[in-house]
Simulated assay, not measured.
Amino acid sequence: MDTIKRIALALVIIGGINWGLIGLFQFDLVAAIFGGQDAALSRVIYTLVGIGALLCLPLLFAPADEDERESARGRNLTYSTEFAEENDPTEFKNDKEK
């Protein structure tokens, strides 16, 4: 399944670059390469990009980092602090009296 996600992501990137070119320069790269927007091959590419976007949709809701993934699996994470244990103040008082 990882391969399908990578292919889908590549298609979404291609679509994003194409939309960027359309927005900035009014140039449709897919249509230029494959014979216009109405050409069958261009329509296939547009359809594959759309399917790739749908397959990438779950990535939007996936946990972003390792801690979130582990907590999503139901693991109970314990975090320790960087602070040292506090000493008993009576120990210092006894040391001064000696």
Rank of each mutant, 00 (worst) to 15 (best):
A32F: 14
V12P: 03
A53W: 04
A72S: 12
I14C: 12
R73M: 05
T47N: 14
F92H: 07
I45Q: 05
I13Y: 06
P63R: 05
P89C: 05
T47I: 08
A72M: 05
E66T: 10
Q37F: 01
E82K: 13
A39D: 06
T78S: 15
L57N: 00
A40P: 03
I13S: 15
L48S: 05
I22E: 04
V44S: 12
A31K: 04
L60F: 12
I22C: 03
V49T: 08
A72F: 07
L41G: 09
D88H: 10
A40L: 15
F61H: 10
T47F: 14
K96A: 11
V49R: 09
V49Q: 09
I51E: 02
K98G: 15
I13R: 10
L11E: 06
L21M: 09
P89F: 07
P63S: 06
G23R: 00
V30I: 15
K96M: 01
I51T: 08
A32D: 12
E91W: 13
E97V: 11
N94H: 15
F92R: 15
A64S: 15
T90Y: 07
G74K: 00
W19E: 08
L29A: 13
I33Q: 07
R43E: 02
G35T: 07
A31D: 04
I13E: 05
F83L: 10
K98A: 04
L77W: 10
G36N: 00
D28H: 01
L57R: 00
D65M: 11
G23E: 06
P63V: 06
K5W: 13
R6S: 15
G50R: 15
G16V: 02
N18S: 08
G23N: 09
F92I: 09
D67G: 15
R75S: 14
T3I: 11
G20M: 07
R43N: 08
F27P: 00
